[in-house]
Design a protein around this nucleic acid. Structure first.
Lengths: 334, 334
DNA sequence: ATGAAAGCGCTAACAT
DNA sequence: ATGTTAGCGCTTTCAT
């Protein structure tokens, strides 16, 4: 513990500690001479203001929180999740704040981590995934006047919730357009029925696909189970499925990696490789191990993190006219 | 902002704020009657002590930090990395502390995040991966008397560095033993030469393999490139490689997932599936998509996180006789 | 067992 | 431009 305090710096510089405080905080009403003297001593003594004391005086923590759910394997097992964090930290650090990450751990005998952090004001602002913005959490944030930004489109039936999300409709559009440009006409999309109802991002991707196909006067073809695809006899070049009677697809858009892997897994014993263009959203780390090339839209999650953090600082600084929501545009990868 | 303070609670209870403070901190010298009265009022008012003020008085932050490197894709892209975090947080929250996660972001005009956190005492203790415990960081920690624990075996030529790591030697042993029990005799291990020198965990896994093979009087066979394996003609059941002359392996241990994927990728066009037992360390999320079963040791990273955090709290509490290092045992998965 | 008062390190309103 | 003083909310001697 370098117990050196503002008082000691003041003594060493032969000034009052208030003067040192003014130097620290860049107060203009300070003579160049004393400023230099104090700064020299601070540097020489390797003095660092105690942020706790500073926080108490300012009634601030200089910390931004990120709330997440470890039990949400979809987030944490997703290698891209850290991209969002990277974007957030970039902005947080550039604003001279710390980054407090917390999971939604619930302690048996006490409040949840979230409730503690919010009620104790351990952070000045919070970034929270839409899946964790429950009614209860929303109420807590409002009650404690805690600034926050949601990643992923707000799902709560509340107005004025600030959010940042990937534009999944646009992603569906450009991916479909890309396949059309490549010459594909019978473009199928694999979008599970239940999941689409539950996850808005899936519905949005589907919507982007549907709109684009319609605009190009192409037939829409949505399958809800990979099994349907397997009824097509690719090897014999048949034009219609023996069972479903649907036109032979020349491209398949998988809405999630899980779907893509299911297809790739099944495809190994099938010679559809050269006949079917595969496409999905987001790049993925094992892609290099894949023998079948996969088209994909590049989702800039780092940008999403940055925008969320920027928006949060705007809110914390009570800037006027902060946008309520931001949609991040995507583009074709590779 | 629920601006309710200890003074207001005291007023409401008709006692001095010192009394309230004693109730909060479980001071024994308090009559049961006043304790109950104060506790009732605190609960009724939904009072939460201001942790900043508390920290200032205690000269503590009630926060534990975790230092990591976003540029280290191996960590962040690894879904298992989060297991460690989960373990850490479990302990941290049970000890009523917060969890401050920080990357090694370096701000252009100022100190690194790490240096700020340590010099400003933003945390009471720190967990840091061995790869980030540089000489410089070590010096900072010592200089500021900051308690810390290293995950992964200490690589620094310094004594007394507390660390927690997976017992990779033991992991190599039991995996090899498992294969032997399964009837394998010609067990090969894929361990790249350069990597082994760089990463101690690889050398340890190799060591565990070597020891076990020797103890069982079996021949050791280490390959440094996957290509060597490809010289074996599995399909014809030949006993020796045409080129290397090495005995036909019936099992292959891959030291990393990358190696495993390389083999699996190449293997698709080869009928070695039924002939070669594959084995690796750590389970991985895409395993269910693999058609070739893979033996593996289950590495309990959550336990590693827990142990690291427990050790850190012991250090922070200045408990006597805290172990300097802990090796986490592994076991065969599935 | 409880109250009064000093102090943790810093900021800010008020003096000079 | 600089010093003085009073907090920020809590803990902790020291009284009583």
């Amino acid at each position: 513990m370098s117990k050196i305090t503002i008082q000691q710096i003041a003594d060493l510089a032969g000034v009052n500690k208030a003067t040192v405080s003014r130097v620290i905080n860049g107060n203009s009403k300070i003579s160049e001479k004393t400023r230099e003297k104090v700064e020299a001593i601070m540097k020489q003594q390797n003095y660092v203001p105690n942020s706790i004391a500073r926080g108490l005086a300012f009634n601030k923590t200089f910390t931004v929180g990120f709330y997440s759910d470890y039990t949400d394997k979809r987030a944490y097992a997703n290698p891209f999740f850290y991209k969002v964090l990277q974007g957030i930290e970039e902005i947080v650090y550039n604003n001279d704040h710390m980054f407090l990450m917390m999971s939604d751990h619930v302690n048996k005998k006490s409040k949840s981590t979230f409730e503690k952090v919010v009620s104790q004001h351990r952070v000045d602002g919070l970034i929270i995934p839409n899946t964790l913005l429950t009614e209860r959490n929303y109420d807590l944030l409002v009650k404690h006047k805690m600034p926050y930004v949601v990643t992923g489109e707000n799902m709560l039936p509340k107005g004025g919730v600030p959010w940042v999300d990937i534009d999944n409709v646009q992603a569906g559009q450009i991916l479909t357009e890309h396949l059309i440009e490549l010459g594909c006409r019978n473009i199928m999309i694999y979008a599970g029925g239940e999941a689409v109802k539950r996850d808005k991002f899936l519905a949005d991707r589907l919507k982007g696909y549907t709109e684009t196909m319609t605009r190009n006067q192409l037939d829409i073809s949505v399958i809800q189970h990979g099994d349907v695809l397997k009824t097509f006899n690719f090897s014999e070049g048949s034009v219609k499925s023996e069972i479903s009677g649907i036109a032979h697809p020349d491209a398949l858009i998988c809405c999630t990696h899980e779907q893509l892997f299911e297809i790739l897994d099944w495809e190994r014993g099938n010679p559809m490789l050269s006949e079917l263009a595969l496409a999905t959203f987001d790049n993925f780390p094992l892609s290099k191990y894949m023998t079948h090339p996969v088209h994909f839209v590049d989702i800039d999650l780092e940008m999403m993190g940055k925008q969320a953090a920027k928006m949060l600082f705007s809110l914390m600084n009570k800037e006027p006219s902060v946008p309520k929501s931001i949609s991040i545009q995507t583009r074709i990868g590779n």
